[in-house]
Design a protein around this nucleic acid. Structure first.
Ligand SMILES: [Zn+2]
Ligand SMILES: [Zn+2]
Ligand SMILES: [Zn+2]
Ligand SMILES: [Zn+2]
Ligand SMILES: [Zn+2]
Ligand SMILES: [Zn+2]
Length: 232
DNA sequence: GAGTTTGAAACT
DNA sequence: CAGTTTCAAACTC
């Protein structure tokens, strides 16, 4: 029925010719050269320019490593394409989203969000998409459309001042209390916080009072009183 | 690989 | 604010 869909961040209908990113995935020759409206509040790293500050390699190692748990045994069998060059190469093909090295967050596979909404993990974490993402040509979250990306971010920040605060984006679980209305937690109803559907569990942290989970069984523990594994 | 389930984001 | 829809990931087969 109603219908206006893709017209969020002022995305025109003409950018069809975006083909692929530049050979250099993510680098700004001159970050400071990128001037943005001074109206924008520069609060943190990715506020304006994603990837401007790499998180280096000190990413916290989540107890529940996505799927990098081990190269030999994973939740899903390793997907070996059996493609070229020897099969002994146990280079985990990206079955889903994972950070091959350390930098980039998980890779997305967005299809309809254009990677300009929080649906996109890349965008949500303040990072550009890159070739490893499966978003392909639907993606606007790359330096080529910096204006659009910045606009989309600013738009979100208008709604939520702390939309892209570093802590908030950490793993989808907010631990900061910048404002009084800044409580973020899971609201699991059917997973009992035992699967990665639960962002708390996915982040490797226990559920807290901020969560509204039902029947929480977060293996990482839960601070929700009334739960069986309280203070596990 | 397709199909289902899930909970957050987005929308009304 | 709550109800609904949309979304992409997690999961299942
Ligand atoms: Zn994306
Ligand atoms: Zn991406
Ligand atoms: Zn993308
Ligand atoms: Zn949960
Ligand atoms: Zn939780
Ligand atoms: Zn929980």
């Amino acid at each position: 029925m109603t219908s206006n869909d893709n017209r969020e961040a002022g995305i025109g209908d003409d950018h069809s010719n975006m083909s692929n990113f530049h050979e250099s995935p993510v680098f700004f020759a001159d970050p400071s050269a990128i001037e943005i409206n001074s109206d924008i509040e520069y609060s943190n790293w990715n506020d304006d320019i994603p990837y401007l500050n790499f998180q280096s390699n000190e990413e916290i190692q989540n107890p529940n490593d996505p799927e990098v748990v081990s190269l030999g045994v994973s939740t899903n069998e390793i997907n070996n394409d059996g493609n070229s060059s020897g099969s002994t190469k146990r280079k985990r093909k990206k079955s889903r989203v994972e950070n091959e090295n350390n930098s980039s967050p998980r890779r997305c596979n967005c299809k309809k969000s254009q990677c300009l909404k929080l649906y996109c993990e890349c965008f949500a974490s303040g990072a550009f998409c890159n070739e490893e993402c499966g978003c392909g040509e639907n993606c606007f979250n790359n330096p080529r459309y910096l204006d659009t990306v910045v606009a989309a971010k600013q738009k979100l920040k208008t709604k939520k001042s702390s939309a892209f605060d570093r802590e908030n984006v950490r793993e989808g679980v907010t631990t900061t209390k910048t404002s009084s209305t800044e409580r973020r937690g899971c609201n699991c109803k059917n997973s009992e916080c035992r699967q990665k559907y639960c962002k708390c569990f996915q982040a490797g942290v226990a559920c807290t009072e901020a969560c509204n989970c039902q029947g929480c069984q977060n293996p990482c523990g839960t601070a929700c009183p009334g739960n069986s594994n309280y203070q596990q």
